[in-house]
Design a protein around this nucleic acid. Sequence first.
DNA 1: CCCCACACTTACCTTTTGGTATGTACTGCC
DNA 2: GGCAGTACATACCAAAAGGTAAGTGTGGGG
Lengths: 118, 118
Amino acid sequence: MEQSDTPCGLDVSLEIMGGKWKPLILYHVQDGPTRFSEIRRLIGGISEKVLAQQLRDLVAMSVLERRDHHRVPPVVDYSLTPFGQTLVEALIPLCEWGNRNRARVTEISQSVSRTKIK
Amino acid sequence: MEQSDTPCGLDVSLEIMGGKWKPLILYHVQDGPTRFSEIRRLIGGISEKVLAQQLRDLVAMSVLERRDHHRVPPVVDYSLTPFGQTLVEALIPLCEWGNRNRARVTEISQSVSRTKIK
DNA sequence: CCCCACACTTACCTTTTGGTATGTACTGCC
DNA sequence: GGCAGTACATACCAAAAGGTAAGTGTGGGG
């Protein structure tokens, strides 16, 4: 399956943060411990099931740390591990690129979807 | 659907290069015009159908440029547009992160899949 | 007493993504 | 003459990802 010598590390990063939501999760957790429901509100559009799933994945990859405050009703929060912190730093240029090009990208993708309909 | 004010541009970048293969394609095209079959060989593991599809997407988003040399048997190559070049630059930190952490990530993901089996 | 909030889990279904196999028009090589 | 290679398209199918709706146990507010 792997037949190239993969000089580029993208396959590694994608194994951890590949998927629609994981980069967004990492980004929104970066300002300190964040609770489940707060992450959900920050991202917007993600379902509880999927968020729980992806958080479990990220914890398993030791990118995030889960803290259960053992209170009832439940209080749990998530924060970056030092390892996760380095990933987020590598992610920041992509954030900036996205912000710089937001207008252009929305414009292009609108014209693309218009030509698809016709 | 979009209910947060999305201060982070990741959603924009992900719209363009989200998916399993697109970042890899961009990476491998960066050294100049590259032919279809060459990209395929460089990446390894991608099918013709999917590659053709994603190349079309990337061209539609004006990240890549397609040149048909109008020869038979067909000769076509793909290269980064100036716009695409800026994206690849934002992608490089992730490559480097992946290369730095390749060993660690493979180790972790192996122990994860082991615990899943048991 | 009723309902909501919390942080999930589970069952079920739809959508998206990816893969396989085949075909195409043509040329160069043996 | 037959086969490989080129850059795809197309039909069909399998797998993965994601969404919806419901349930869980508890406590606090009305």
